[in-house]
């Protein structure tokens, strides 16, 4: 064999291995996606078919209007709206409050600044589930059980956002801000016109993760929203689970609805997500 044909054979072998490698992982990925498929497949069949033994992979009759029915009759439309109101409100408050406090930590001199920042960091160590009981009692005391403000306010003041934005604000050249002060801008104006527009990547990240965390949050709204009308999507999903005649097909339709925003965000913002996790990987444990 000449070296040329040998090289060719080698190349062909590597290519074959490559294709095999991709194919095998694609198979794993398909298996991994099965629960999503199973959810949708069961959402569009009759409840009798969901419970039929033996199971059918695909419905015999596709009932696409199950989504519309789940949306109005159960009422997942209402739950969806509640989830949107709560997640968006928490996100907006978190971003506003974190911008203000993050800026103060990054750029304003005041006595005790570093100590306060350390205290903020320390609160990040406290696991959320520990605060559930006292938070519930506080919300109860404030008479905000079963209200939107009762669900929203206690989770909208996390310290992580202040810290994240402080770190990002520190990376903006100080001279920009000094130029703005000389141009006659107040601190608030500097924050709004200079710092925030230049911090969109960090603010976007904070918004994304805050929104998703609240969209997926279960225990807190479960405890505070005692009325069925005020349930969020995750809570709503469990409300019908215990009924005698569980409408599994509608619940699967509701589950599908609850996953749509997260799936869209994960796909559309994959680059942002990867970059932010990459940042974590770079700092890994240090």
């Amino acid at each position: 064999m000449t070296t040329k044909t040998k090289a060719k054979a080698n190349a062909r072998r590597t290519l074959a291995l490559d294709i095999l490698n991709h194919g095998a992982l694609a198979l794993v990925a398909l298996l991994f996606l099965f629960p999503f498929f199973w959810m949708v497949s069961n959402a569009v069949r009759s409840n009798a078919e969901v419970l039929a033994i033996p199971v059918r992979i695909l419905p015999a009759v596709f009932e696409w209007d199950n989504f519309a029915k789940a949306w109005t009759t159960l009422p997942f439309g209402r739950f969806f709206l509640n989830s949107v109101i709560i997640s968006v409100s928490v996100t907006v408050i978190t971003v506003l409050v974190s911008c203000l406090s993050g800026y103060a930590f990054a750029r304003l001199k005041f006595p005790g600044r570093d100590k306060l920042l350390m205290a903020y960091l320390a609160t990040l160590m406290v696991p959320g589930i520990m605060l559930i009981i006292p938070l519930f009692l506080i919300v109860n005391k404030l008479g905000m059980i079963n209200t939107f403000q009762g669900v929203i306010l206690p989770v909208a003041f996390g310290t992580f956002g202040s810290f994240l934005l402080r770190q990002f604000f520190l990376s903006i050249p100080l001279e920009l801000e000094e130029a703005a002060r000389i141009d006659g801008a107040s601190r608030l104006r500097i924050l709004i016109s200079i710092i925030i527009p230049l911090s969109m990547p960090a603010i976007g990240l904070l918004s994304l993760f805050t929104f998703i965390a609240q969209w997926n949050n279960f225990l807190w709204p479960l405890i505070v929203m005692t009325g069925a009308d005020n349930a969020t999507l995750p809570v709503g999903l469990t409300l019908f689970q215990t009924q005698q005649t569980t409408a599994w097909n509608y619940i699967m339709a509701g589950a599908t609805l609850s996953m749509i925003p997260g799936v869209i965000l994960a796909v559309v913002l994959q680059k942002l997500i990867y970059n932010s996790i990459s940042l974590n990987a770079g700092m890994g444990g240090r």
């Binding site: 001279e175 920009l176 130029a179 000389i182 006659g184 200079i194 527009p197 230049l198």
Partner: peptide, 20 residues
Amino acid sequence: LEPKERDIAMVFQSYALYPH
């Protein structure tokens, strides 16, 4: 007085132009 009350202008080494 705050910088804005002093009626001055300043040119920085880095220029400090607002990038956006």
